[in-house]
C-alpha cells in the first residue's frame, strides 16, 4: 500500500540537531528494502508561493498556506505492507525525533491498474530538465466550490488539468490523498514511538493531494500551471521548490553552509513572477 510521508516541525517540535541527523542511513535502508518510491526536501516556507483564483482573478502571495510550524519541509512516497510498516518507516526518519511525520494514504480509484505506482518506475533516474516544484493542493474555507473530499471524482475535478499538464510535459506525477481523518502522526520522543490520530476535526485547511511539476519558465510558469488547477478556485495551491541535498554528507557542515540563506526568499517575489506570467 502506498503512502505519502510529510515531514513538519509540528507544535511540539524540538530544535533540529544536525549532528544527530542520520537521514542517509534512513534513505539507504528504505532503498535497500525497496519501500521507497521517491522523496525530496523542500525549500523552507519563505520560498513557498500560494496561488488562489477568486472571481477569475489570480491572487498570488509569498509564503505557505498555513503557519510555518505545520508547514511541510519534505516528503516521501513509500510502498509498504500496511500502516504498521509505514509507522515503522516513519518513526525511524530523523524528523520524527524532533518534529513529526504525517502518514497519508492515497485515494485508491476502483478502476486503477493494480500494478501502477504513484511515482512512475525509473523516475529517480530521469534527468532533471527544468525547475521542479511540489504543487500542494490545499482545501480551505472560502473556496468557490465545495471542497473535494477524497472519495469522488468531481465534475470539475482535475482530470482536464492533468491531461493538459501531462501533454505539456509539465506534470511528472501526482495523486489525490485521502482526507485528514485517515491521517496518522508519528513522533519519536525519549526513544518512544508516539502514534496519534492525525485527523483533527478542527482542521479547516489541509493538503488534499499533490503533483510534482517541472517547468522551463521558472516560478512564473509554475504560477500559471497552478492557477489553471481547479482547486486554485476551490482552495489554494502551494508551490514549493525542491531543495535537493546529499543525504550522506556531513549534516553539521551542510547546516552551517545553508545558514546564510535561512529566512531569505530565494524565489522571485510572487507579485513579480505573477506579473511576468501575464506578459
Amino acid at each position: 500500500m502506498e503512502y505519502a510521508l510529510f515531514y513538519a516541525e509540528g507544535a511540539d517540535a524540538l530544535p533540529y540537531a544536525p549532528a544527530d541527523d542520520n537521514v542517509g542511513e534512513w534513505v539507504d535502508d528504505v532503498e535497500a528494502r525497496g519501500v521507497s518510491e521517491y522523496g525530496e526536501r523542500l525549500r523552507p516556507a519563505q520560498d513557498a508561493t500560494t496561488v488562489r483564483v477568486r472571481g477569475g482573478e489570480v491572487l498570488v502571495v509569498d509564503g505557505p498556506f498555513t503557519e510555518s510550524k505545520e508547514s511541510i519541509g519534505g516528503f516521501d512516497v513509500i510502498d509498504v505492507r500496511d500502516l504498521d510498516e509505514a509507522i515503522e518507516v516513519a518513526s525511524r526518519h530523523p524528523v520524527a525525533s524532533f518534529g513529526r511525520v504525517e502518514i497519508r494514504p492515497f485515494v485508491r480509484w476502483p478502476d486503477a491498474d493494480p500494478d501502477s505506482r504513484i511515482v512512475p518506475a525509473g523516475f529517480a533516474e530521469r534527468p532533471v530538465r527544468g525547475r521542479r516544484y511540489l504543487l500542494l493542493v490545499v482545501v480551505e474555507p472560502g473556496g468557490e466550490r465545495a471542497p473535494a473530499g477524497g472519495d469522488r471524482a468531481e465534475d470539475d475535478g482535475p482530470e482536464a488539468w492533468v491531461r493538459e499538464m501531462d501533454g505539456r510535459g509539465v506534470r511528472l506525477f501526482g495523486e489525490v490523498l485521502r482526507g485528514p481523518a485517515d491521517a496518522t502522526f508519528v513522533r519519536r520522543r525519549h526513544d518512544e514511538v508516539l502514534v496519534t490520530d492525525g485527523g483533527f476535526a478542527e482542521a479547516k485547511e489541509w493538503v488534499a493531494g499533490f503533483d510534482l511539476i517541472e517547468v522551463q519558465g521558472g516560478l512564473a510558469e509554475a504560477i500559471e500551471v497552478a492557477s489553471k488547477h481547479p482547486m486554485a478556485r476551490g482552495g489554494a495551491i502551494e508551490l514549493r521548490p525542491l531543495w535537493p541535498f546529499d543525504v550522506h554528507e556531513d549534516h553539521v557542515a551542510r547546516t552551517e553552509r545553508e545558514a546564510a540563506d535561512l529566512g531569505r526568499r530565494l524565489e522571485p517575489a510572487a507579485a513579480v513572477a505573477a506579473a511576468g506570467s501575464e506578459r
Binding site: 500500500m1 504498521d84 485517515d182
Partner: peptide, 18 residues
Amino acid sequence: KRKIRHAGIPYRVPAADL
C-alpha cells in the same frame, strides 16, 4: 471502520517488537 480500511490499519497481531 473507514480509517481501518482506507489508512491500511492491519488486521493482525503486531510483530514481537511492537
